[in-house]
Design a protein around this nucleic acid. Sequence first.
RNA 1: GGCUCCGUAGCUCAGCGGUUAGAGCGCGCCACUCAUAAUGGCGAGGCCGGUGGUUCGAAUCCACCCGGAGCUACCA
Length: 506
Amino acid sequence: MSYYVTTPIYYVNGEPHLGHAYTTIAADVLARHMRQRGEDVFFLTGTDEHGEPVTQAAERLGITPRELGDRNAGRFRELARALNVTNDFFIRTTDPEHAEVVAEVVQRIYDNGHVYEGTYEGWYCPRCADFKTESELEEGNTCPIHKIELELEHEDNWFFRLASFQERLEHLYAERPDFVIPQNRYNEALSFIKGGLRDFSLSRARLKWGVPVPWDRSQVIYVWIDALLNYYSALAYARPGEDLRDRFWPATVHLIGKDILKFHAVIWPAMLMAADIEVPRRVGIHGFLLLGEHKMSKSLGNVIEPFRVVELYGADALRFYVVREVSFGSDGEVSPDGFETRYTTELANEYGNLASRTLAMIDRYRDGIVPEAPPDTALAAAFDQLAEVVRERLDDLELTAALDEIWRRIKELNRFVQEEQPWQLSKDDARAERLDEVLYALAEGLRVVSVLLHPFMPESAERLLAALGREDVSLDCARFGAVPGGATVGELGQLFPRVEAEAPAA
RNA sequence: GGCUCCGUAGCUCAGCGGUUAGAGCGCGCCACUCAUAAUGGCGAGGCCGGUGGUUCGAAUCCACCCGGAGCUACCA
């Protein structure tokens, strides 16, 4: 089965921050998990580089939009690398191949009769060189940035007949209750649709930084139309000489933050319908990572700097933390203290130390060879159906719940050690058989959780599995008792060393 | 204003008609010594936002009130 997962393409008018890292990490967890299952996976991320804010940001820096795009696209690529993310392609909307596909699709929407010439009326700020929305306006119709009084101006541009898709969209939602998840976002999108849709302009007459409208080169395609099409266009040219659209379209899941719900849950499917292209299987929405009381944002200066955390603690620690701390789909608070606590208590003490004590005991009591023994029945019961549950959770985009299932087993293993007291068993030759069972069960349990943890913390899981002498990470072998004893264990060192450093926040 | 959601232990949250309301973190006590001074057990702590109602029975259903959040379209 093919599995195509995307992140939004990130807007290059600013530096990457934890919010970007969050979506990218989540997408990577899914991509890696599906690869474990043996699925045919394509994972896309990239950058959105057109539009007004980019030209403005570039202007402020005294460089061209293209240069700004190059610079920040590079930063987003570095972020993906730092996070140990396995995207199969990195798209930029300034790729000429992307522009070609955009022009093609928009032309088709036009040819299909879903576009007409209209007049956009709005509050125009000459200093911003942009129209302001009603909600942006301040007292007395003034620009929120320049505080000058704005005039109601007109612009002739091209309109997309979104309103005419209302029925088809409602039908889509009725037919596919999981088109948008979680449920509350589905409801939100549906009620928006039911509230009545209005056409909107798909071109901008005053801008130059974008993809030209094919039948009217004096205008440029509205950034969002341009941007959304990345999911489709990338497949056309990611592999030279191959059109991956046959293999991976429609997309399995678009992962997005809640702020861009409508674009993905309403406009995007309508656009695809207008162009006779199949709509994606589903749109998965996650919440915001909050720091203190506020949404994390650069302007508030409360950003946890992902590059810095990775440098100090490693990519796995950050990947783990964001998935573990905030229930995927909801907003949740993150903090340097919270990170510290989870790193120390869970990664170092519970998981890392479980690995240490297990390997040490196998080394000490059985000369570094995992004993061959029948699987302990109590632990076997505790691990029963674990892989299946994790599968289901991830199918439902419940990343946090999936991780929690795994983590409960880690705690179970620590409890098992305490109850069985292998150090006592080792003193009594009559109980050697039980010691074999206990050590095998520990090695096996540790192996299973590590295989399941692999999508979340690939590097650590691999290191641990290598130390256990069993490196297969396919989901099929994530069953307690699936692999017999007999392996020679190796050196591991500290998986998550304690870090005596200042807080990870910037 | 309209629609939707939420208010449960100090903190974050689960439970959503049926025995004495749960988890994690934090706090206190105890046990163990294999391990990154890690681990395990026990305990303290809650008029389940308020008021009325439905019911044999409500944190769980209904109404209203108080408090908070989201959405109510062309910012990416």
